[in-house]
């Protein structure tokens, strides 16, 4: 168990659990997939925060987050906050699991399945607004929010593209991706050649030592 105050952790987890269950309730399309994960228990250790938590899929509509659990986990993953951020947002979680520094014990199947359910969640934000404000007002506000999100998403993508272009073309501050990959390949090839040369030298030295002993 971590050294954090259990009450503080419980507060954070209670808030996160409530938000997750709210999101699940507003995403009926994910219920079937979550139902298939019922009973699954995942353990997550975030080394950056010295924090271990457990995620239990209770049923199709409920997730439980815990700081302490004595049951056998289906999968236990250990990594940094950055690793988990990359895993959560990745379109190819299997690749992240293989290539990042995340350590996995147990089956990766349930972890990847959960990641995919979360990333494909289609949350119907309009439903609670309509419930609270009525059909007309609720729909209008939801449309307004959707426009704001669309604009935000477009602005984010555009900013990312422009920053990337500036760094590459205008500022010449970073090399193009292809050039970088070529450089990595060259470094890797050099490292392998050095390894081979070192092995050859060791072999020759061993041979010379043997020759000296026999003389």
């Amino acid at each position: 168990m971590t050294q954090h105050d259990p009450a503080l952790l419980s507060a954070a987890l209670a808030g996160a659990e409530r938000a997750m269950n709210q999101a699940i309730a507003l995403s009926p399309t994910s219920h079937q997939a979550l139902g298939g994960l019922s009973g699954t228990l995942l353990g997550v250790e975030v080394t950056t925060l010295d924090l271990t938590l457990y995620i239990k899929m209770v049923d199709a509509t409920e997730v439980r987050l815990m700081t302490h659990c004595e049951d056998q986990t289906d999968a236990f993953v250990r990594g940094t906050l950055e690793d988990f951020g990359a895993l959560a947002t990745s379109e190819d979680p299997a690749a992240i699991l293989i290539n990042s520094s995340i350590e996995l014990q147990g089956s990766s199947h349930s972890l990847i399945a959960l990641q995919q359910v979360v990333s494909r969640m289609d949350i119907d934000w309009e439903a609670p607004l309509v419930d609270a404000l009525g059909d007309v007002m609720g729909h209008q506000i939801a449309e307004g929010l959707r426009s704001v999100f669309r604009w935000g998403e477009g602005a984010r993508a555009s900013l990312k593209r422009q920053v990337s272009e500036y760094l590459l073309e205008e500022g010449r501050l970073t090399p193009p991706k292809a050039e970088l990959e070529h450089f990595y390949d060259a470094v890797q090839s050099l490292a392998m050649r050095v390894d081979r040369a070192q092995n050859q030298v060791e072999k020759l030295l061993a041979k010379a030592a043997l020759k000296r002993e026999t003389q």
Binding site: P6, S10, A11, A14, H68, C69, E70, D71
Partner: peptide
């Protein structure tokens, strides 16, 4: 409201099955 968090952690430690 913190008593709810204290109780939540206590319930976790019970490891009820």
């Amino acid at each position: 409201g913190i008593h709810r968090l204290w109780k939540r952690f206590t319930i976790e430690l019970c490891a009820v099955r």
